[in-house]
Design a protein around this nucleic acid. Structure first.
Lengths: 213, 213
DNA sequence: AAAAGATTGTCAAGAGTTTGACAGATTAAA
DNA sequence: TTTAATCTGTCAAACTCTTGACAATCTTTT
């Protein structure tokens, strides 16, 4: 599988391809051309062909792409053929919401533990999983072979939690705290900065009020 | 305020500038050069100067930028000098989590109502706000002058909810459902596609396992 | 008051991304 | 079987975004 320098722009489009192909598969569509896919996904046909070609020639001239094959190929590219053990750090509202999401499990992200520092929360059970004290994290990550942690703490605790997780040998962090974590280069961090997203919306909303043209 | 075609790349960096400037302000830093800001925020100094210059010359040669002024200018650019009334649609785990977030209020996004279709949830009170039935939404949006709706329903209900909201005259949608909503051009949509984000993380994690170079 | 140092705003070059065009291959129709 | 239609993979052009360079200007030091 050719992997020489896929651009960030392409990588961020992959989940969207995956999502639309799953819809097509659910609707029992067998084949699709870049032009047809373009019509529903909104990228140009040329871009679709170029994107997919980064990973190998999945299509066939005169035919298009086999939906099922392409779906599975993109799944593999996204690493969905593997299983990952995960933990949630911070069992506040957001942590609890994530703990109750079943979609993540479906894609192979298995929630193994939930951790918090608040004694009032430690000991509760969320979606069948006990909330443990943070001082148990090291042992747990090692024993359960956890590779991804979802950081759902508030801003002030997030960096310290990240440091701890790195020491535990975690490989990737999904960060929901409104802060840019400092971690070693080989640790993968994906941020969900809700406030940044809302402020972007606000920017466009402001403009749309006194729209110029 | 010059507004002729600001690029998406610039717009998406604005909230990050705002966030770092707030930190500086909290730490009582009075002035900052593009070089210093570059060191902490991670963009190049050149990019910072070019970004900021899209909106006017906020800096001064030989001095740099006044932190407080710049913070407020960027706040204005982001529309944070205005107040927006908001509603949450879907009082499941995520909806409840968002309802309990105080940060949004702090930036001028005032939560006015929470709506759901589930009779078991309607009538509950979350963070001091009653959960109402969806059939009350039209009247409510008009009366309370709601301009932003957070869609926190599951995938299957999201498009219908969006259609309803558009009919009610909503201006912007913050969408958490894993679907690309079809709405008229003048409606602003910001998506938080959690699954897309997690799959991107997965892509990098897969690569980091059998790293090639 | 003058000289030295700092730092912006801006321009053009460089890097990255998207689009359009089309040869070559495959499928479908005649 | 032959012809027409379809559609990919690929290349180069067009476009967008980022970076480096530097004149102009302001601040600080002497």
């Amino acid at each position: 599988m050719a992997n020489n320098k896929i651009s960030m722009a392409v990588i961020r489009r992959l989940p969207k391809y995956h999502r639309y192909l799953r819809d097509l598969l659910d609707r029992d569509v067998k084949r699709i051309s870049s032009k047809e896919l373009s019509d529903i996904i909104g990228f140009t046909a040329s871009q679709i062909r170029q994107d997919l070609n980064n990973f190998g020639g999945f299509g066939q001239q005169g035919y298009g792409y086999n939906v099922e094959d392409l779906y599975h190929e993109i799944g593999k590219i996204l690493g969905l053929n593997k299983k990952y053990n995960t933990v949630i750090i911070g069992a506040g509202n957001l942590g609890q919401a994530l703990a109750n999401y079943s979609s993540f499990n479906r894609f192979g992200f298995e929630l193994k533990g939930i951790f918090d520092v608040n004694p009032k929360i430690v000991g509760l059970t969320i979606n069948g999983i006990d909330v443990m004290d943070m001082d148990k994290i090291q042992r747990f990550v090692e024993k359960e072979e956890v590779s991804i942690a979802y950081i759902c703490t508030n801003q002030s605790g997030a960096q310290e939690v990240a440091d701890t997780l790195v020491k535990c040998g975690i490989k990737a962090i999904w960060n929901f705290a409104p802060i840019d974590l400092k971690v070693p280069e080989d640790i993968i961090v994906e941020n969900v900065h809700l406030i940044d997203n809302l402020l972007t919306l606000s920017y466009f909303l402001k403009d749309s009020d006194g729209e110029l043209d």
